[in-house]
Write a protein that binds this DNA or RNA. Sequence first.
DNA 1: GGACACATGTAACGGGTTACATGATTTC
DNA 2: GAAATCATGTAACCCGTTACATGTGTCC
Lengths: 214, 214
Amino acid sequence: MKSRIERQALTTTSFALLGLLSIKPWTTYELAGQMDKGLGKFWPRARSMLFKEPQKLVALGLAEASSEHVGRRARTVYTITPAGRLRLTAWLSTPGDGPVLEWEQLVKVFFAESGSKEDLLATLAAVRSWSDERLRYQRAKAQTYLDGVGTFPERAAITSLTGSFLAEFEALVGSWATRAQAIVETWPADIHDAQPDRRIIERVAKGTPLAFDD
Amino acid sequence: MKSRIERQALTTTSFALLGLLSIKPWTTYELAGQMDKGLGKFWPRARSMLFKEPQKLVALGLAEASSEHVGRRARTVYTITPAGRLRLTAWLSTPGDGPVLEWEQLVKVFFAESGSKEDLLATLAAVRSWSDERLRYQRAKAQTYLDGVGTFPERAAITSLTGSFLAEFEALVGSWATRAQAIVETWPADIHDAQPDRRIIERVAKGTPLAFDD
DNA sequence: GGACACATGTAACGGGTTACATGATTTC
DNA sequence: GAAATCATGTAACCCGTTACATGTGTCC
């Protein structure tokens, strides 16, 4: 009979951490930083997860923990084991799930008829701000690579793929919001009376390059 | 001292259900169907949630439940109350969270160096399939509106906004995958040796219209 | 030497998932 | 009339969150 820990299946979160460890050893705090900067943009998890998960990896022999000291306070550094690398490689050869989007603001847009036109415009403005801020960050990060001061230059081939997706996604969110704002402006105060823009529906139906134009 | 139920704050999931009820009364099963078709694309939840949440709404007086019978089996129909409408309207005037993306396949791309080039190309091919399938669905749905047989024609002004975002997002995912495939093809078998494409990084840094071109 | 940001965790709770169970309806 | 599919739920489990607690450098 297997112990509890052994039975637990590894989650995508486990592999995300294992993947980071495959790059170099990290303290838990550094791991959290990586989550904010890169990985967390497409696999977001709370900080506290990053304290629990590595312990599971250690219990399974996929990582090792070592204690360091800062003053009289301890901290833990995690290192991947050969077994961990094998497990990670095996995982990469299995199919993964497609993108899952969770967007509260869009839920509010979807039910906008129960609110005022101003509410809807305010939500769209917030969407634009979100996009602007994210893009500012993403651009700055790309610039560090051009300046030769990027964090992991040896990984730039890969991270430019994921990074460019993120930038395009954030740009799409922003340009969609701008277009939506322009459309909603033309609507009457009572959203129930708004008429659909047939051109938009046609573009979706035809699959014509839904574009960043205008 | 308040009872447990009263104290529980409503979640976005609660409001999503309340929003659906604001359109018309539904059985739980129909609610689940709506999740698959529309809302679930940007607020995905398991079916079982849709049985628990409405009970909370009823306990708070925001909805009412009535029992119908099909054969000797009972089913529940939920209807929104005036208090429920007020609550929904109030919610719409508060700010919402920005998009949250969770994408396991992109995690696999991010750690592709630990796997083979074939693994990476397989993942990218799966991304394309995902995009193709979703777009097929989205296009068909848009076509029903052009044909005048859409489910809620009176809501078309709103749903064409959310629907066009979804279509553009799915198209972006697909075109990104295609471009990534082309780039990865040029890489050596050992991904560690791959050289970054400087043009991509420049485009992100400049914020130049990251486009669907090529 | 007080304030404040940075660093390092723990504990409890609950939203959400997977798995299970079973009744109706249609198909052939 | 068996099989497959649609319809309607329940229950247990756990991943992930929020809230809490406390140590360490640094700025002025």
